[in-house]
Design a protein around this nucleic acid. Structure first.
Lengths: 206, 206
DNA sequence: TCATTTGGGATACATTTGTTACCCTATCCT
DNA sequence: AGGATAGGGTAACAAATGTATCCCAAATGA
């Protein structure tokens, strides 16, 4: 029966691994660990790694330098997605320009590689919990189903609305009692779907 | 004047670096790169890394194996924060039990190391855009100011409300017209503040 | 046309790095 | 008392790995 609890020393080593990787972008060698903790033999450091591996905290790759992988670190799921300032319609993919920066997000929140983030302007979706200044995570899509919240290009501007299709035209419905739904002919060419809103991040306090 | 644009080949190599690190948790050796691209001499792979470093995409550490750091990756800002299932009052810090897992989040979203995530139960804050099933990012705090949204312990249960202080008692105000504010004597001992809600993550679509 | 940059082959070398083997002490548990 | 586990010392070895040189070809720009 395994004991999964780490000893004090093992926890120190484990924390050092995470710290080292975070700082430099690559794991430490056995001798790096020795130097940090004043241990003399590389093998003695390896023993700790063996213990960490046995207890399931790391994974090692024999005979390969610095081959230490931190298991279960949620950081492993982090992906870098762009924050876009302005969205422009284009083909085949809507061109995304004005990349303001990148943020790290857990990929399990959206299960999609090419998602991007968009800052909300305007108050047309307050009824759906989407307020000015919030950040949207958008998955690029060419089409949508009834009731989904989409980012669409309309008159050269990006807008966020709830999507409905009625016959040959589409309705973009704001979730704000003060605003009227917009109805457009689907073939007018002045309209296209950029993507679906899959997540909203609100900054309650800065 | 530097040309920061990558050639086709350099971009392939750069993508491979990111992919390799993401898969295994540690960067590739020069020979790993050679093997992947069918290059024969390690030095020839090193040339590409030199180019990538010169153009500012990576940082290398001479004489150290696998010492490749991806620059500007937002993933560097990712930190792992726990998702807690239940919050229990305790001292000095409210004990957090039932850790359901960890998620990666951009630390610039909350500027605090010991934040945690909490899944919303109930509909008492729908007016503030906080609905059942949403995730809250909470920064542990012992006190709060008027109007802030807090996570508080009340009768042994965690609850999310807007906080107000009136004389010697506090008011916890739901943002839901169907629910009444709760007023408690601050000294009753049956009440404590766990932390402030600093961010809300809504899953619009699963 | 000449120089530069990019991409790659081949060989050799020196360092870094993981591994093996054996020894010691202290603690904990049966 | 005996055995297992954690933590560490010492020395030697072999593999993994970065570096150095010199070569060549094609594309590019002054």
């Amino acid at each position: 029966m395994k004991n999964r609890a780490l000893t004090q020393r093992q926890k120190e080593i484990f924390d050092f691994l995470k710290e080292f990787i975070e700082e430099g972008g690559y794991p430490p060698s056995l001798r790096d660990i020795c130097e940090r903790f004043g241990i003399k033999g590389p093998k003695n450091a390896a023993k700790h790694l063996d213990a960490l591996e046995r207890k399931g905290f790391i994974k090692r790759n024999p005979n390969i330098s610095r081959a230490i992988e931190i298991i279960d670190s949620a950081v492993k799921n982090a992906v870098s997605i762009p924050i876009v300032g302005h969205v422009r319609a284009g083909s085949p993919h809507p061109a995304i320009e004005d990349i303001l920066g990148h943020v790290a997000l857990d990929s399990r929140f959206f299960k999609c590689r090419d998602a991007f983030m968009l800052k909300v302007e305007g108050d047309s979706m307050t009824g759906a919990g989407i307020d000015e200044g919030d950040f949207l995570i958008v998955r690029p899509e060419k089409d949508a189903s009834d009731g989904e919240i989409v980012v669409a290009m309309l008159d050269g501007q990006a807008t966020v609305k709830r999507f409905f299709r009625k016959g040959g035209s589409v309705m973009l419905k704001p979730e704000n009692p003060n605003l009227e739904p917009i109805i457009i002919d689907e073939m007018s060419g002045e309209f296209s779907i950029i993507g679906k809103v899959i997540s909203v991040i609100k900054q309650v306090e800065k």
